[in-house]
């Protein structure tokens, strides 16, 4: 009997629960435990998961939470500032963790628990969302086209729920970290404008440096790559207001977003480039990726019994096929202006 605990019943958490309870995959999840500090969110989740809840397959836990979690896998989809403690608690119980966070500082803080995860032999998947997450798997897949990869450039557009929007807002005013020629380059967020063509319907958008965790996770996965950067789509108003607190409440959920992964390298004696991408609402995509990762964890298919990023944990082609069944179709850009 498999049991999955989901911390955070927001835009991502509820959808992860829905995927896991829907069935149709090789791995059956019997019960889902949803934890949140907001009773309204939990009652909304119960309404969404009505059929499974009426069968007794959904439990909800409102703060204050019990000390121990009875689960086979824990999904951490909570707002920034709460993820480190959640991962630490899960590790102390020896329970595998799937973390869908996209904040740089918190991802780095969680990565410091890598030794403990390795010693305990507990899989902890960092960045199991849209970006980081699917972006890294696309990079791993694109890498198979090359004999040697020189550069990986990630761009993303759009935000999931309000917590994700807040992380994006702050990221534009923080330092970004790019990996270049054996060292980290710190650059101001909001700088380095680059026009990136995302899959339709998102299309071309100006992207800027931001405090994103993708380069950190990708460098861990692909230490031989000489240059790794990440950019985020933003408007001029986003950049102008980034240093200020968010003055107006965010939407419940953003619209369609996208990730774009550009991989440059050598094949034989020629230089080549591959551009892969996916367009979807970020929370929908993050939930599909996280749910698939949970199923792989339950099935014992994760490749590392310790802490690692998603592209290190999964076989890319099989993973992309699985998420495609959930509506996340990877695309490739072909044409003279593949690199803009």
């Amino acid at each position: 009997m498999s049991r999955v605990a989901i911390f955070g019943a927001g835009a991502v958490g509820i959808r992860v629960a829905r995927h896991l309870l829907a069935g149709g995959s090789a791995v059956h999840v019997d019960r889902v435990v949803l934890r949140d500090v907001d009773p309204e969110r939990l009652s909304g989740a119960l309404a969404v998961l009505d059929a499974a809840a009426s069968e007794g397959r959904v439990e909800v836990e409102l703060a204050p939470f019990p000390d121990r979690v009875d689960a086979d896998v824990i999904v951490v989809a909570t707002p920034r500032g709460t993820q480190l403690a959640a991962v630490r608690d899960a590790l102390s119980g020896g329970i595998p963790v799937v973390l869908s966070g996209d904040g740089l500082a918190e991802t780095v803080a969680v990565s410091r628990l890598a030794d403990e995860a390795g010693e305990r032999g507990v899989p902890v998947v960092l960045g199991a969302g849209f970006a980081p997450g699917l972006s890294g798997v696309l990079a791993a897949h694109a890498r198979s086209w090359f004999d040697h990869v020189d550069e990986i450039h990630i761009a993303k557009a759009g935000a999931g729920g309000p917590a994700c929007a807040l992380v994006h807002h702050r990221a534009l005013s923080r330092l970004s970290y790019d990996w270049r020629s054996g060292g980290w380059r710190r650059r101001p967020g909001g700088s380095g404008r680059e026009l990136c063509w995302f899959p339709e319907p998102v299309g071309p958008m100006d992207c800027y440096r931001a405090a994103l965790p993708d380069p950190v996770l990708l460098h861990h996965a692909f230490p031989e790559v000489e240059r790794i950067t990440a950019r985020m789509a933003a408007t001029r108003l986003d950049r102008l207001t980034a240093p200020l607190p968010m003055l107006s409440p965010t939407h419940v959920e953003g619209g369609v977003g996208a990730v774009r992964v550009e991989v440059r390298g050598r094949r034989g004696s020629t230089q080549d480039v591959r551009v892969l991408g996916v367009a979807e609402r970020p929370a929908v995509a993050a939930a599909a990726v996280a749910a698939t990762t949970v199923e792989w964890a339950l099935d014992g298919r994760l490749r590392v019994r310790g802490m690692a990023s998603l592209p290190e944990m999964v076989e890319p082609v099989a993973f992309l096929h699985t998420v495609a069944d959930r509506g996340l179709v990877a695309e490739i850009f072909e044409g003279e202006h593949a690199v803009v």
Binding site: G203, F333, H337
Partner: peptide, 22 residues
């Protein structure tokens, strides 16, 4: 703040990855 008209794509396009090897 208003920006200019969006840049139109000149050639190329996206297509889904297909087949067992994607």
């Amino acid at each position: 703040m208003a920006g200019g008209a969006p840049v139109e794509r000149q050639s190329g396009g996206w297509r889904p990855l297909e087949g067992p090897d994607l």
